[in-house]
């Protein structure tokens, strides 16, 4: 159990928090530097995504879900944070290796800065979207304090998986190429554009293995329906968040020697 090493590593990362912060800011700015719409892209992307899906599933495949657009939007924002951060974090150690060569930062800073910069976009998009949801369903307003909690848990979960994937990608370069397909598959098995109820009961158990399911369900409950998510789901979210963080840090610390050489 590399608990001691993990704690040491967390301490080291904390000591470099400023570097983490500046890198994330730079990455955040760099994403939209030179573009015309600038940081409005933080919201335009998910909105466009939502429009397409809504069109397809109302005009083409009738799902019959009420307020389908918002239904989708509530899930699509966390999903896009997760998949975006993971996509950028996975190759980050290789892409930014010159930083590692120059400075003695802990290497976790790199994938974590990707996640953090996406988190910033994520948060910003909520600032625009939240008024829309609260106007649609005022019942969600008292549950607003839960939002930071779920945001943080999503953040932890994404950090964990990103750390894990960033190291595995060094050892198996294929991961960054597989990631696109993996995420697409993952998207389909996550109830973003459908609800759990729509799945026939025989198959429902399978969806519980998908760590993203409880997250999306929670989001929907909190932001769309204004209901407190049920205990099981909530515990699942907490569990997955910390488990993935633990796994991510362990792998990152233990496989460091072989990974660093392969960069």
């Amino acid at each position: 159990m590399p608990v001691k090493l993990i704690i040491k590593r967390i301490q080291k990362i904390y000591s470099y928090r400023r570097s983490l912060w500046s890198m994330s800011l730079k990455q955040f700015k760099a994403k939209y530097a030179g573009s015309v719409l600038g940081f409005f892209w933080v919201i335009i992307n998910p909105l466009l995504m939502m429009l397409v899906i809504t069109f397809v599933f109302t005009a083409v495949f009738k799902t019959g879900v009420k307020d389908f657009a918002l239904f989708v939007l509530s899930g699509i924002l966390p999903w896009m944070f997760f998949s975006g951060a993971l996509s950028e974090a996975t190759p980050s150690l290789l892409v930014q290796k010159s930083v590692l060569h120059q400075f003695s930062l802990p290497k976790e800073i790199l994938p974590l800065s990707s996640v953090l910069s996406y988190f910033m976009s994520f948060l910003m998009s909520w600032c625009i979207v939240y008024p829309v949801f609260s106007f649609h369903n005022p019942k969600i307003i008292p549950l607003t304090p839960l939002l930071p909690v779920i945001f943080l848990l999503t953040y932890f979960f994404t950090c964990g998986i990103s750390l894990l994937f960033s190291v595995i990608n060094i050892l198996f370069r294929d991961l960054e190429h597989l990631l696109g397909i993996l995420l697409m598959f993952w998207f389909w098995v996550t109830p973003v554009f459908y609800s759990i109820e729509m799945i026939p009961p025989e198959f429902r158990w399978a969806f519980n293995f998908n760590p993203m399911s409880p997250f999306i369900i929670c989001y929907r409950e909190i932001i769309l329906y204004g209901r407190i998510p049920d205990v099981g789901t909530f515990l699942g979210v907490i569990g997955w968040a910390f488990f993935s963080l633990f796994i991510g840090l362990s792998v990152s610390v233990c496989l460091e020697s072989s990974a660093l050489k392969r960069i």
Binding site: M23, K26, G34, S98, V99, Q102, F103
Partner: peptide
Amino acid sequence: GFQAELTGRENIFLQSEL
């Protein structure tokens, strides 16, 4: 350690912060 898109000045800051 240099970020190619940023200017020299900006890189000075970046590197110092890093």
